[in-house]
Write a protein that binds this DNA or RNA. Structure first.
Lengths: 214, 214
DNA sequence: TCAAAAGTGTTAAGTTTACACCCATGA
DNA sequence: TCATGGGTGTAAACTTAACACTTTTGA
């Protein structure tokens, strides 16, 4: 403990998680009703406070596990939000993270979720504080990195068709994508491979299942 | 003040500023000797602690002004650094910002600087804590955005030659750049314009001075 | 007159976009 | 047999990269 530091104020630090999922061909966001004042009952991102013995990243992972029942979710830090009045209760500095979840894994662990539920990203209700702004910025980051291996890999199940992957890209970008160009582009990147499995659930003909390498 | 929040710990929150400048054809970084324990005398980024009545962004601006004498420096948040042991003194969560400075403006305000000085980015000494990591990440962001109007605009004086601008790009990217391609590319972007001024200081022939639009 | 930096175009390679039809299957 | 989603190639437009010589002028 260093005397010099003593003269400075201390702050509550929270983590807020923008949890993206992909289901029914749409990009989804996991939200909840705020369980405590202020703005109790208002919709909010999944969040919590940083504890003494954990890094901010670890706090985000802990919160993610608490709310989804899943460990080691893929996440990236967005940035810190530090306006004085951002939290209506008292001064809280928040570090926002976005996380990606395979909704299939989530559904089998739902019981652990603290009343959280999925909303469509395009029909996002008003959230408390600056949470809508966080979502907006996180979505922009997601769009920038849609072709990075880790992104779609963590939103899809192990095996998926090219059509599913294309639909996911379209859901993230909010734009239609050309089928032939998309297939060429994704295969050229060389991080997914065709398996010998066939998915017959979404067409009579059946579609090859692919998976991410490694 | 909400009772619920009371149960959570509070943290010192600092801002650390990666201050880039451009002089003698090189990209520079403003650093200082740490004026207090722990690691007093070790080299460090320019930083300070967030106060109660200011946002984290405002804290960064305050620190920038304290150390450079300049107001409203252009800055962007990098991200929060929140490892438990990152500060050897006690737990401090830091929000890193990178800022851009026209070294000409700085030199006329030097008197205000608290013993800070410029180092070349390529000859960066070891800094305390995780500051080298912060610089590395900030430089990567700077490289990504080198063609955004605000970047070079804030590192150069009002009037500059295309050669100076090219040298700045090269200094940021750490790579040589093709002269003809560079000139076409920058002029096509349409955010700089030729003035009728001529700079005769760096060649016998003289070079046209340009400036950023608006 | 010459050294030193300023200024200037073209071609090839690579990337991105636009676009339409046949295939396999189960109902 | 037909409706449905799966699968496939090519040409044009655009962008990026490679590359060398002439101009101006002060010392």
């Amino acid at each position: 403990m260093t005397a010099f530091y003593e003269t400075y104020p201390r702050f509550l630090v929270s983590v807020d998680c923008i949890i993206f999922g992909f289901a029914e061909g749409k990009l989804k966001l996991l939200i909840q009703e705020r369980p405590y004042e202020p703005e109790k009952g208002m919709l909010s991102l999944i969040g919590g406070f940083v504890k003494n013995d954990e890094s901010v990243d670890t706090a985000a992972q802990r919160v993610l596990t608490q709310f989804t029942g899943l460990k080691d979710l893929y996440m990236r830090q967005l940035r810190a939000f530090g306006e004085v009045e951002r939290d209506k209760g008292e001064r809280v500095i928040s570090v926002a993270y976005y996380a990606l979840i395979n909704v299939g894994d989530y559904n089998s662990n739902q019981s652990d979720s603290h009343g959280a539920y999925w909303t469509e990203i395009n029909e996002l209700p008003e959230l408390c504080f600056d949470h809508n702004q966080m979502v907006k910025e996180a979505l922009k980051e997601l769009q920038k990195s849609v072709f990075e291996k880790e992104i779609c890999n963590n939103l899809l199940p192990e095996f998926f068709t090219l059509s599913k992957l294309q639909t996911l890209h379209e859901a993230i970008l909010g734009l239609p994508v050309d089928k032939r160009n998309f297939r060429r582009s994704i295969l050229d990147r060389n991080y997914i491979i065709k398996t010998d499995k066939i998915d017959k659930t979404s067409s009579r003909r059946g579609a090859s299942l692919y998976k991410f390498k490694d």
